[in-house]
Design a protein around this nucleic acid. Structure first.
Lengths: 337, 337
DNA sequence: GCCGGGCACTAATACGTAACAGTAAATCGC
DNA sequence: GCGATTTACTGTTACGTATTAGTGCCCGGC
C-alpha cells in the first residue's frame, strides 16, 4: 500500500480512503484514477491480516464438523454454509474432529475451538452429522456460535435442526392418505435425537386416522442395508404383514427393496415404501424411485451462516421442514386398487 | 499478552520468549511458572493474526474445490487434506467454486484465489472433482500451489492424480485372469482425463492375453444408473453377449445390476461386473457386493498437503494407485465353472 | 578493587492496515 | 477584502506479536 501511495504521489492514508470509501471520502476522481492505476501497476492486493487486526474482524467463520468423511450429509451442510458465507464475502475455516463417539473427540473438539479462536474467527459453527443434543464446549461462548443439526441445553445458543417429528408425521400421513392402515416402521437406536422424534411422528400420524400401531411392526435394527434386509424379512414373514413400510433412512429402504425383490414382493403394488434422507445415490437411482423425506442439510447450512451474520433476525432455535420427495414407491394397498 | 506480562511482573518480551522458546531462552523456571500462572489467570490466547503478520506465515492452507456438493468424492479428498493439515498444526480455508463447466466458473475461481491470497494463506490446493487437465489460473504462482485430482500443462506445478490407466488394466486383468475373454466396457465421454486412460488400460489388458476388443462391446453413455441400464440392455440383447462388464463407475454398474435382475441374468454366475470408484452407498450395499477399483481420494488429499509442507520431498507430479476392492460380483464365465 | 562475563531480563521496532485529528490552500458569501 | 467553509489531503497511532539489540546487576577471578 505504501508502494502504491508513493507511485501515485499521495499518502498511504489517501490510498486507504480510496479503497474503502471511494464515494464519501471527497477525493476527486482524478486522484482516485491515479491511485487505481498505481494499484494495477504495482499489483497491489490488500493484506487482510493487517486489515483484520485493525478492524478486529476477519470475515472468516470457523466450521467444526464431527465427521466429514463417512456421511454424504456433510457435503450439503458445508455447501450450504459455504454458499451463504461466500455471498457475504466470508470464508470458511473448516475443521473435522472425527467420530463424535471416539474417546478423544472431546479433546480434539476443544483444540479445534482453540485453534479457531486463536485465528480470530468472527463466529463458530458446530455441526453434527447426526442430529443430536450435545454439551456445549467451553470456548464457544467467546464468539457468536451456532449449532448445526444439533441442539444443547444452553438456552441462549442459536441452533437449527430438521423438523423430524413433522417429517415423520407427513411421511406416515402420505401412506394413510392412500389407504394404508397396517404400516411398519423400521427404526434404530443409534444415539441421537432423530429416531425418537420420528417414531413419535409416526405413532401420532397412525393414530390420527383412528388406527393403532402394532408394536410387532416397529422394528429396531441398524439403519443400514443389512439391517433393512433383516427387518424386512421379519416383516414379510409375519402372519399379517404390513402393506407399507416407513424407514428411518434410505439405506434401510434399500435393504427392504432387496428382500422384497428376492421374495417376489412387488414395490409399490404389494408393498409401499417411504424412506428418509433422499440420498442422491440411492433414492433416485433404485427402481422404482424411492419416495422419501429430504433432510434440509443445505438449508440448515445456509441458516447458520445467516444467523451468525445477523443474530437478531429470526428465532434463536429454528426447526426446518423436510420436504417430501415423491417418486414411485408408494401405491394404495393391494385390494383397494 | 501485555496483561499477562503486567500480572507476572515482567515485560511482554519475556512472555513471548517463554511461549516460544521455553528451553533456550535462559528464563529461570521460577519466572516461567509465574508467567504460565498469569496466562492461566488471564485466560490468554495467542492472536495468530498478529503472529502471522510478524512471521509472514499463517499456518493456513487454502483449498479450492470445483464442486463440493454433487459428488461424494469431495468428502474423502477434503478429509485427507484436513487430517494431514491438522496433524501439522495447519487449518484449511475451504472455498467451493461450483461446477467447473458453469459459465462463471473462471471468474469465481479467480475471485477465490484472490480471497485466499489476501488472507495470506501459506499455500493453495486446487482440487477437481473429476480428474481433468486444467489451465493454471493466474495467482496460483504467487504461493506454493498443488493440483489435486488434476494436472496442467505447466511443467513446474505439483499435482497428484489417480493412476487410471493401471487401475483399468488391473480391473480388466482381474477378469481375464478368471477366464473372461469377451469383456464389455461401459464408458462415457464426460469431459476429463479419466475415460481415455481407463479405456486404454482396458484395451491393453484385453490384448495382453491375446484377445481382441470387440468394438460392439465398448459403449459410451452417461455414467449414471440410467446410462448403465440402457447400455447393459444393449449388451445383453447382443447376439454374442459378453461374459463380463467393466464399468467406468459404480452407478453405471448399479444400472447393469438392475437390468440383469430384470432379465433374469445372474451376477456373477451369468455375468461378471467390475465397477470403479467404490462408492460407499453402492458398492458395498448392492447384492452381490460389487468388485470395484477404489479411487485414492483420501490419499491424494493427504499427498497435496504433505507436498505443500515439504515441497522437496518426492516427485513433483504423482500418480497414486487405485486398490482393487474384491467383493462378489466376479466369477469365471459360465461353462468354465 | 576492578574487569570480564554470564544472567535475567527489557526497550524498541516492524509487520500492513484503518481512522482520527489535523492542516494548508482554495473558494465562497456578503 | 476578510472570515468562514470546503476541498484535498497527510501525520500519526494502534492493533498484538516476534525479535534484535541492548541494559543493569551480580559474581568470580586475579
Amino acid at each position: 500500500m505504501r508502494d502504491v501511495a508513493a507511485r501515485a504521489g499521495v499518502s498511504q492514508t489517501t490510498v486507504s480512503l480510496v479503497l474503502n470509501n471511494p464515494a464519501t471520502s471527497g477525493i476527486p476522481e482524478s486522484t482516485q484514477a491515479r491511485i487505481r492505476a498505481a494499484i494495477e501497476e504495482v499489483g497491489y492486493r490488500t493484506n487482510r491480516l493487517a486489515r483484520a487486526m485493525r478492524l478486529d474482524r476477519t470475515d472468516t467463520i470457523g466450521f467444526i464438523s464431527d465427521d466429514i468423511a463417512t456421511t454424504p450429509y456433510a457435503n450439503r451442510m458445508i455447501r450450504g454454509a459455504q454458499d451463504a458465507a461466500w455471498e457475504a464475502g466470508r470464508l470458511l475455516l473448516i475443521v473435522s474432529t472425527g467420530a463424535f463417539d471416539h474417546p478423544d473427540h472431546q479433546t480434539i473438539e476443544q483444540t479445534a475451538i482453540d485453534q479457531l479462536l486463536e485465528r480470530q474467527v468472527d463466529g463458530i459453527v458446530l455441526a453434527a452429522m447426526f442430529h443430536r443434543v450435545l454439551d456445549l464446549p467451553d470456548g464457544l461462548r467467546e464468539k457468536p456460535s451456532v449449532l448445526l443439526n444439533a441442539s444443547s441445553e444452553a438456552p441462549d445458543i442459536a441452533s437449527v435442526v430438521p423438523d423430524e417429528y413433522s417429517a415423520a408425521y407427513e411421511a406416515t400421513s402420505y401412506l394413510t392418505d392412500r389407504g394404508h392402515r397396517r404400516i411398519a416402521h423400521l427404526t434404530t437406536r443409534y444415539p441421537g435425537a432423530a429416531w425418537t422424534l420420528r417414531l413419535q411422528g409416526f405413532r401420532d400420524a397412525v393414530e390420527a386416522v383412528g388406527a393403532t400401531v402394532d408394536e410387532d411392526l416397529v422394528l429396531f435394527d441398524e439403519s443400514t442395508t443389512e439391517g433393512g434386509r433383516r427387518a424386512t424379512r421379519l416383516l414379510l414373514e409375519h402372519p399379517d404383514p404390513p402393506t407399507a413400510i416407513f424407514c428411518h433412512n434410505d439405506q434401510y429402504a434399500m435393504g427392504a427393496y432387496q428382500v422384497a425383490n428376492d421374495l417376489g414382493v412387488r414395490i409399490p403394488e404389494d408393498l409401499s415404501v417411504v424412506g428418509f434422507d433422499d440420498q442422491q445415490l440411492i433414492a433416485a437411482e433404485i427402481v422404482p424411485g424411492l419416495t422419501t423425506m429430504r433432510l434440509p442439510h443445505y438449508e440448515m447450512g445456509q441458516w447458520v451462516i445467516q444467523k451468525l451474520l445477523d443474530p437478531e433476525a429470526g428465532p434463536l432455535n429454528a426447526t426446518l421442514p423436510c420436504p417430501l420427495i415423491e417418486r414411485a414407491s408408494v401405491a394404495p394397498p393391494a385390494g383397494r386398487g
